Simulated scan of single mutants.
Amino acid sequence: MHAWLCSNPVGVEALTWSELPTPTPKEGEVLIEIKAASLNFPDLLIVQNKYQMKPPLPFIPGSEFSGVVQALGPGVTQLQVGQHVVCMPGVGGFATHAVVPAAQCLPLPAGFSHEDAAAFVMIYATSHHALVDRAQLKAGETVLVLGAAGGVGTAAIQIAKNLGARVIAAASSDSKCALCRSIGADETINYSQQNLREALKALTGGKGPEVIYDPVGGDLAEPAFRSIAWRGRYLVVGFASGTIPSLPLNLVLLRGASVVGVSLGECAKREPQAYAKMMAELVDWYLQGKIKPVIDRTLPMTELPAAYAHMGARSVRGKLVLVNA
């Protein structure tokens, strides 16, 4: 097998495309021939030693991938050799093969492409957990999605619209705003040219959005929160800006608002039955055509550094996917 190996997490430049022995699955594990893997923001942070999860060195980055089961370890009965699956083990995806726990594999139904599957789990599960479970979003409510043209942002737009909400998508360019409108956003704000608070005031008649979905953090957090509606819910999804913001707690009091943490990994670990039910609903929505990953481009697995550079330049619309020939 071949894989992108990280022996020293000092940045993308330290990754090497290496030939390694193909592993043999142990008890409860399966060997996957990887067909496609997507690039998520944590995949960039982890090779820079900036992510909360720090795997033992050396490791293979790549949190999310799809492929075909090649071999079963002892005790695996829920999967079969030749079955198409998607996995999100956190590492191991930027390779030709990976061994993962069988319990972390979701079988793919017919009609679910490997490229879409590789770009699916993290963004849709995060957004569903955030909007449905944590925010209890209701039809007719208004959602502000920050960083709306990114992977989780595009997923949040589609899920919110599927739930009957009004979506205001905020992004950093006119072209990104156009993408958001093409997948269902009702209104858009280009926050590189418009004042976020003034635009929100105009679009909501001064009321503000009931739900704010924030995977960005940084300088946008406080002006967004100052615009939140009474009893609003502010979803802390991530910090793609690289800066963890500080919110004055008096704003929480004055707005009667909730600041709500969104942790997909902890949800999957602590509430496996709820997580499985959520994934089943998301797969059903995909098969019905209600949601579909926005894929910026696909690249050969060997071009991972170019994919990282594209992500680092913040020019990605939706998801980047790497494929093995």
Score class of each variant (00 low, 15 high):
Y213G: 03
A149T: 04
P61N: 06
H84Q: 15
L287H: 13
A170M: 07
T16D: 07
L15A: 02
G164D: 10
L304V: 00
R231A: 12
C6M: 15
S258N: 08
L287C: 15
R231W: 10
S315M: 14
P293D: 12
V167Y: 01
W285P: 12
A110H: 12
D133S: 12
P89N: 09
W230Y: 14
T16S: 14
L57E: 00
P61R: 07
L304I: 01
T154N: 01
L72I: 04
L163M: 10
D284A: 14
D219Y: 08
A170C: 13
V167G: 04
L247W: 02
I183W: 00
W230F: 14
R255P: 07
R166A: 14
I123E: 08
V81M: 09
R231F: 11
Q52W: 04
P74E: 14
R317Y: 11
A257S: 15
W17I: 11
P23W: 05
S113I: 09
L108H: 02
E222R: 08
T22Q: 15
S18W: 04
I189V: 11
M53V: 15
S127T: 08
A119V: 10
P25C: 13
A307I: 05
V283F: 03
R255H: 15
I157K: 03
E33H: 13
Y275E: 06
G73A: 09
A280I: 01
D116K: 04
A307H: 02
L146V: 09
E13A: 07
A95L: 03
F65D: 07
V167N: 02
G82T: 06
E19P: 05
Y234E: 06
R297P: 10
K138N: 12
G312H: 07
M301G: 03
